[in-house]
């Protein structure tokens, strides 16, 4: 505990760096996934191949991606930009299939009814399709946020400052408290973001509150 109290500054700066590397990929991946998902949702072959590709991409461990990317970006291997781009790619691999499933799950009848009522295509997307896909999109976003926060730490082995550096530094100097505080802060940050998303969704999608469970029997 004393180590923590003596190093609050260090913890604070690592946490801040961590947040700065985690938030942009989460936002980018989420926002970019929507048009991509919309584009592929109705095109069967494109969706299957892109989803399969995304699945494979997600199987690639993060560290090799951090190492390979500078080849294409021209960044230094220790650049936070490198981490942000890599995590955005991961985020897309996670979010695009999940978003296209969310959009596909919106009932075609509802959409046809909206068209019949005179919604223009873009209006229909924003005002009908997106809100209805909302709960499933939020579920995807939660997974995205939590796993991104956790993945940022891997940059620590390359020397990119984040909560991950606490693991590396703590291990090399034999300070258990440093590693533990890194783990606790990472998990806490992930859960905090998760909570914010849930609360945000409650405000944005008031009708989609967790449905009351039906009785055991239908």
């Amino acid at each position: 505990m004393t180590w923590v109290l003596e190093n609050l500054d260090l913890l604070g700066s690592r946490l801040l760096a961590h947040v700065l590397q985690a938030i942009p990929p989460i936002l980018l991946a989420f926002v970019l996934s929507l048009p991509i998902a919309k584009l592929i949702a109705v095109r069967g072959w494109l969706r299957t191949s892109l989803t399969a590709g995304a699945g494979l991409l997600y199987a690639i461990p993060s560290l090799p991606l951090f190492i390979v990317l500078p080849l294409f970006l021209g960044t230094s291997i220790r650049s936070p930009l490198n981490i942000v781009v890599a995590l955005t790619i991961y985020g897309l691999a996670l979010m695009v299939p999940s978003a296209s499933e969310a959009l596909r799950a919106v009932s075609g009848d509802t959409l046809r009814a909206a068209t019949a009522q005179g919604y223009a295509p873009l209006q229909r997307f924003w005002q009908v399709e997106l809100p209805l896909a909302g709960p499933a999109l939020v579920a995807g976003l939660r997974v995205l946020a939590v796993s991104t926060v956790s993945l940022v730490t891997v940059g620590g082995v390359l020397g990119v400052p984040s909560l991950g550096m606490l693991f590396i530094d703590g291990f090399q100097r034999g300070i258990l408290e440093e590693i533990l505080s890194g783990i606790v802060l990472t998990v806490a940050l992930a859960l905090l973001l998760d909570l914010l998303i849930v609360l945000g969704a409650r405000v944005a999608l008031p009708w989609a509150r967790t449905p009351r469970r039906k009785g055991a029997r239908a």
Binding site: V143, V146, S150, T153, G164, I168, G174, L176, T186
Partner: peptide, 19 residues
């Protein structure tokens, strides 16, 4: 399963290694 997703793998590996 949800909480475990938040666990940083590197943190676990170094923690157990040191321990």
């Amino acid at each position: 399963s949800g909480a475990a997703r938040a666990l940083p793998t590197l943190g676990l590996v170094t923690l157990f290694g040191l321990w």
